[in-house]
Amino acid sequence: MFEARLGQATILKKILDAIKDLLNEATFDCSDSGIQLQAMDNSHVSLVSLTLRSDGFDKFRCDRNLSMGMNLGSMAKILKCANNEDNVTMKAQDNADTVTIMFESANQEKVSDYEMKLMNLDQEHLGIPETDFSCVVRMPAMEFARICRDLAQFSESVVICCTKEGVKFSASGDVGTANIKLAQTGSVDKEEEAVIIEMQEPVTLTFACRYLNAFTKATPLSTQVQLSMCADVPLVVEYAIKDLGHIRYYLAPKIED
């Protein structure tokens, strides 16, 4: 028996919004430690890794490890039927071929449930090696989204250059060149507005705008985003999900032809 309950459907809606542009379907691996999802986008350029800890749920029970393959378009249709403040509960029997998603209004006067067919998806788990990153940048998630959106107008690629002075995002195309520099913030009243750079050595890497923009669909989940970079390894873009877990996106760099 698997049962996981969250106080607010809005969190699950935001999580789905953060992954459904990259993934058509995905397997949710449930165990007593929580829910894990790892999947590559169709073109195998990026990897999404979602971790939701069992202690972050209002109620969590998972008697046996369970892999639930879900069509994310179908799940989005179901989540559209929930009000943001509704409680949401996911339930499945051991070895079931369906999952039930139930919404309850705060006053318990409206209860709706949706049974969704599960899919057998080919599981291709990738091993992610531990990396000592050259640069780790923490910055406001909204600012990162804005930069990715703005620079996508100029080029298919963004060059991210990180030094101890700051981080520079550049794009160059037919229109010309765009450069956006962010300096490390000295002192800020609000932690969520800070730009913080931890640098071992400077790094310059090129990434596809299209994927960066897809990752920023996670912006509503978190006030800050963390970018971890190292020469010739995938970029890690991490959004914390408060008291519940995190979503990490890995993006392979572009290299010169």
Binding site: H44, V45, L47, H125, L126, G127, P129, A252, P253, K254
Partner: peptide, 12 residues
């Protein structure tokens, strides 16, 4: 050139 994520992370 866009590299594939599988050229960095190997299947388990």
């Amino acid at each position: 050139m866009q590299k594939s994520i599988t050229s960095f992370f190997k299947k388990q």
